[in-house]
Design a protein around this nucleic acid. Structure first.
Lengths: 142, 142
DNA sequence: CAACAGTTTAGAACTGTTTTAATATAATTT
DNA sequence: AAATTATATTAAAACAGTTCTAAACTGTTG
C-alpha cells in the first residue's frame, strides 16, 4: 500500500482512473526493482494468487496497453504465439532461451552500439533491438 | 516449369512428396533471386492469383514448416499477430516499417559485428538478430 | 448525493494456427 | 499398368491469444 500514491499517479498519467484492479496490477508490475517479464496470462494468475481481487482479462489487456503507450511497459519483440512484456523500459536487449522459453535481459552496456549503415529514404529508426537465441552448450552439436 | 526438378529436389530433401500444390508453393517462393518476405495469408493469395490451383491453408502451413526445419526458409523474429517468413536464409537483419507493415532486409555487412559481453553459464548463442523499427521521418515528432 | 463519464466483467467474436478425418494422390509392388 | 500402400489435400472443427460488446458497476464532479 505504501506505493499506492505513485501507482495512482502512473495510472492518471496513462489516462486511466485508479481502480482497485488497476492498482493491483501496478503492485504486481512495479513493486519490485527487478525486471519483470510476463505474459498476460501469467499476470492474471499472479494477481489471482496474491489477492482476493478478481481481474478480468479485458482489464489486464486494457491497462497493459495503456502503460505501453505511456512507456511504462515495453512489449518484447519476440515472435511467439503470445506477447511478452517487460517492466524494464530502458533501451536494452534480450536473450531468449529456446529450451525454457524464458527471456533474459541484456543491458545496453553489454552490447556495442549497433550501427546500421543501410538507410531508408524518408524513414528514421525508432528502435533497434537485438534478440540472441540461446541453447544448452553441450559441446556436442545437435 | 523450368525449375520443377530443383523444386522436387527441395521437397524430397525436406521429406515431402512433390505434389502439384507443393511445387506451386516452390514456384512462388523460389522462382526469383529477390528476397521474399511473406505471411501465410499473402502466400495463399499469390498462389490463388497466379494459378488455377487451389491450395488449402493446412498444406501451406505444412510445407512452410518443413522448409523452415530444413533451412530453406527462415521465420523472422518479429512480434506481430502473424508470422513473417523470409526466403533469404543467410544471416542478416531487418528493418520493420511500422507504418506499412513491411520488412526490409539489412545485409550482415551493413551492421557491425554484434558482440554481446554478457554470458549465460551453460548456454551458447545460436543466433543473433537485429530488428530496427522505422517510421516516416517528418522532422516533426508525433 | 445525484448524475455522468469511465470501468469491469463475462462472454461473444475474431484472427492466426493446428488438428481432424474423409477423400484423393503419389509411390511401390505385383 | 493395375493393385496396394503410404502419404497428401481438404474443409471444417478446434484451439489459443487477443479484442470487442453491452450490461452492470464505480469513481468523480458539481
Amino acid at each position: 500500500m505504501a506505493y499506492a500514491k505513485q501507482y495512482i499517479d502512473k495510472l492518471r498519467k496513462s489516462g486511466l482512473r485508479p481502480t482497485k484492479q488497476r492498482i493491483k496490477i501496478c503492485e504486481v508490475l512495479f513493486d519490485t526493482d527487478k525486471t519483470f517479464h510476463f505474459t498476460i496470462k501469467e499476470l492474471v494468475k499472479i494477481i489471482e494468487n496474491q489477492a482476493n481481487i478478481k481481474v478480468s482479462l479485458a482489464t489486464v489487456y486494457n491497462t497493459v496497453h495503456a502503460f505501453i503507450i505511456k512507456g511504462y511497459l515495453k512489449e518484447i519483440p519476440l515472435n511467439s504465439s503470445q506477447s511478452y512484456y517487460d517492466t524494464n523500459v530502458s533501451h536494452h536487449h534480450h536473450f531468449f532461451d529456446e529450451e525454457e522459453n524464458k527471456l533474459i535481459d541484456i543491458d545496453q552496456d553489454d552490447v556495442d552500439e549497433i550501427n546500421i549503415r543501410k538507410k531508408i529514404p524518408g524513414k528514421k529508426i525508432r528502435s533497434v533491438e537485438v534478440i540472441a537465441k540461446i541453447v544448452s552448450d553441450n559441446q556436442s552439436q545437435k
